[in-house]
Design a protein around this nucleic acid. Sequence first.
DNA 1: AAATTGTTGACTAAATCAATCGTGATTGTC
DNA 2: GACAATCACGATTGATTTAGTCAACAATTT
Lengths: 162, 162
Amino acid sequence: MKLSKRGEYGIKALIDLASRDTVLGAATVKEIAGHQKIPVKFLEQILLTLKNAGVLKSKPGAGGGYALAKPADQITLGQVVRLLDGPLAPIPCVSKTAYQPCVCPDENTCGLRLTMLDVRNAIADILDNTTLADVTQRMEQAQRQAARPARRSRPRSRRPAP
Amino acid sequence: MKLSKRGEYGIKALIDLASRDTVLGAATVKEIAGHQKIPVKFLEQILLTLKNAGVLKSKPGAGGGYALAKPADQITLGQVVRLLDGPLAPIPCVSKTAYQPCVCPDENTCGLRLTMLDVRNAIADILDNTTLADVTQRMEQAQRQAARPARRSRPRSRRPAP
DNA sequence: AAATTGTTGACTAAATCAATCGTGATTGTC
DNA sequence: GACAATCACGATTGATTTAGTCAACAATTT
């Protein structure tokens, strides 16, 4: 059930790009790699496939680099994970985008399939409804909460021990 | 985000065992492998680790085989997947059972982590609350529904074509 | 036009996962 | 007690994924 390094690095790079000032525009592979502790050459591969898929655009030459090809609220994590990591579904017979039949005699009564379908839907519900913009917004919110004293840890009245 | 073959085969084997008549008791590796189309030798490994973890018990020799070590409603898919496939969490820094710190400067404001934590919780909610008994029960229900004519496919009054 | 900076693509090495093979040890039956 | 069935274990092979390298190619700046 785990996300590959490819997917992890790809998302981190996209978040990095999305949380930059939009005016700054392009960032170089080296910058992102250094900032996010990602092996440079591996990141090149990843950004390249993201570019070929239309998620990123790049400008070669001096002063060039990578930038988002569309607004951050139009890029979902679901798209990205599927691109870099393959289908979200734990097993192919519950995938919507890369369905493959399995060997069981009847898919509609297969116990494994029924449960894994739930899992797939739960994952897809989250990732397909979370955009890069959502993520950066949530990060900023978390940073604001970290800055001011946390409300939850405020001491509250205690009951006397029984 | 995918389930390994090891996990898939393990769950299938357990479902197979759980849906047998409890009186029948043990089933042999060969039987299960044949029934579920699993390579015999691979299944041996899997059932062995399930036995060592206390999920299965085995009786060697003629007339022997594997059986559940405890009632089906006390075995959750979460346990099984973790045993055979490792932690449920997509990335180690959101795992409850196998937490590993990640490289990001602050885990509490890491965008990737925040989203993947949601995903982990969604997966765990399902798998840790689904027992083998739940699965077999659901299978029987699906079979009953498949047997009688489906209500949804009943022909209904059609509108005239425009 | 040359130098610099950066992308592109092909290729290789290491690690993990899936599956198989061979053999030993244990139990029940005749 | 001998035989057959079955689990137990270690080692090995092959495929896939991950990671990293090298050598070209493209555009911008001077």
